[in-house]
Computed example of a mutant assay.
Amino acid sequence: MSISIDHDRCMGAGQCALTAPGVFTQDEDGYGALVPGHDEDDPMVREAARACPVRAITVAGP
């Protein structure tokens, strides 16, 4: 599975980090970021993408 965050679109709502904290965090500016060494197979990844109010997260693959 491939996970990407469109940093131009992200507004820092933090829904991704709240929904899948093992995969997403917020950077020093408050914007979405991936946790180093994250588990791409975390079952909450797709839910976190759906929770993003500006649809800044893309999940591709199985």
Rank of each mutant, 00 (worst) to 15 (best):
A56Q: 09
R46C: 07
A48F: 12
T25Y: 09
D42V: 03
A33K: 06
C10K: 04
E47Q: 15
T25S: 00
A51W: 00
D39I: 02
E40D: 11
G14P: 04
M11P: 03
T19R: 14
R55P: 04
H7M: 09
F24E: 04
F24M: 09
Q26R: 09
Y31P: 00
P43H: 04
M11D: 13
Q26I: 03
A17S: 08
E28S: 08
T58V: 14
G14Y: 00
Y31V: 02
T58D: 15
M1D: 13
E47C: 12
M1P: 14
R55I: 11
V59A: 13
R55E: 12
A51C: 01
V54I: 11
P53Q: 07
I5A: 10
V54F: 14
A56N: 06
D6Y: 14
C52K: 10
R55M: 13
A20H: 00
R50I: 00
D41S: 13
G22Y: 06
D29E: 14
Q26V: 05
E40S: 03
G12E: 05
G22Q: 06
S2M: 10
P21L: 08
L18Q: 12
V45Y: 03
V35C: 03
C10M: 10
E28Q: 01
E28F: 03
V23P: 05
D29L: 12
P53R: 14
G30V: 02
G61W: 05
V23M: 12
M44S: 11
P62G: 08
A20C: 11
E40Y: 01
G61Q: 04
A17L: 03
L34S: 02
G61V: 05
G32H: 04
D39Y: 05
A13K: 01
A60E: 15
G37S: 00
A60H: 10
Y31H: 12
V23D: 09
Q15T: 13
E28D: 14
Q26F: 07
V45K: 08
E28L: 04
M1R: 13
P53G: 09
Q15I: 05
P21M: 11
H38M: 10
G12Q: 01
D39S: 03
I3C: 10
F24T: 03
C16D: 09
G22V: 08
A33T: 08
D39F: 09
Q26A: 07
M44P: 02
L18S: 13
M44Q: 12
Q15L: 14
V23H: 09
G12R: 00
A56Y: 10
G32Q: 01
M44I: 02
R9M: 08
A33N: 06
T19N: 06
H38F: 14
I3Y: 07
E47L: 14
M44Y: 01
D8P: 06
V59H: 11
S4N: 15
C10I: 05
G30W: 00
G61D: 01
G61A: 09
A48R: 11
Q15F: 14
M1L: 12
P62N: 09
C16H: 01
S4D: 14
A33V: 02
T25A: 03
G37R: 08
A20N: 06
C16Y: 06
C16Q: 10
A17H: 01
